[in-house]
Simulated scan of single mutants.
Amino acid sequence: MSGPDGTAKQKRVWDEAAPRYDQQIAFLERNWFTGAREWITARAHGRVLEVAVGTGRNLPFYGDGVTLTGIELSTGMLAIARTRAAGLGLKADLREGDAEHLPFDDASFDTVLCALSLCTIPDPVAAIGEMKRVLVPGGTLLLVDHVASSWAPVRAAQWLIERFTIRAAGEHFTRRQLPLVTAAGFAIEETERLRAGTVERIRARKPPHAR
């Protein structure tokens, strides 16, 4: 479900999940998304926008020299992220907002990244379009997410799991972001698929003369 109804549903889902999210995702990060947060934050530079910052689990991994802005749909998740940033002594502009309608001017950021979230954003095409819009020409897009497996038996299992997860939480397992990034006009600079192709990391660049 996309549009306002889909966005409102996602906000409710993640507000309800916020108190348990860190505990639930920690196991997956150790055993499925191993190193994903380190990979994506190591490639961020300059003025950085993190889309769907969640509870701020990327925050400890950012290097010096970045100016960080984060946006998050869920009020509950955002409150945890702000607490985490304060505990780290990290200056970050963390605000509530929608990935499909980013509240920033064109060409505002050198890097835009999104980790483990395009799988649940109702309209990923719109979200990627917004990420491109707010990037400076030549800016860097960084994505990591679970995607449709490159192995057919696993992909079939993912399709079955989706029959429940899409209805319950809007979470997709057979999406793949790379074709959407290419279709949006980005130049792909680095890709990697892991765990039977179920995890994909992408580094792409907005063309220097793109608007």
Rank of each mutant, 00 (worst) to 15 (best):
R175D: 11
I128F: 15
E96C: 14
L141Y: 01
L178S: 03
R84W: 07
V147S: 07
A152M: 12
E130H: 04
R133E: 05
A168M: 05
C119M: 01
A115D: 11
P137I: 02
A115M: 08
F173S: 13
R167S: 12
V144M: 10
T120S: 15
P153V: 12
A168C: 04
L90V: 05
D93M: 05
K132M: 12
E171S: 13
C114R: 01
S108L: 13
E130A: 00
K91D: 12
I128A: 09
V154G: 07
L135H: 08
H101R: 15
E171I: 14
V154D: 05
G89E: 06
R95W: 08
L113C: 03
E162I: 07
A156L: 15
E96P: 10
L78W: 01
V147T: 09
D110N: 05
R163E: 05
I128M: 02
A156I: 04
L142A: 04
V136K: 04
R176T: 01
T69H: 15
S150D: 09
T67K: 09
D123I: 06
P124D: 02
R155S: 13
V144K: 05
A152T: 13
I161G: 12
F104M: 10
G70T: 09
F109R: 11
D145W: 00
S108E: 05
R163F: 02
A107G: 13
W159G: 12
R175P: 13
D93S: 08
S149K: 07
L102F: 15
I71P: 03
F104W: 11
M77F: 01
T165Q: 11
D123R: 07
A127C: 04
A126C: 01
A107C: 06
A148D: 04
W159N: 02
D106K: 14
A148K: 14
A86H: 14
F164A: 05
T111G: 08
P153Q: 07
D123H: 06
Q177S: 15
L118I: 11
A126S: 10
L88G: 05
S150R: 13
E72L: 07
P137T: 00
L180R: 10
A107N: 13
C114A: 08
D64I: 00
V154E: 03
E130P: 00
D93K: 14
P124H: 11
T111C: 01
G129E: 05
L160A: 13
E72N: 04
I121E: 07
A81Y: 04
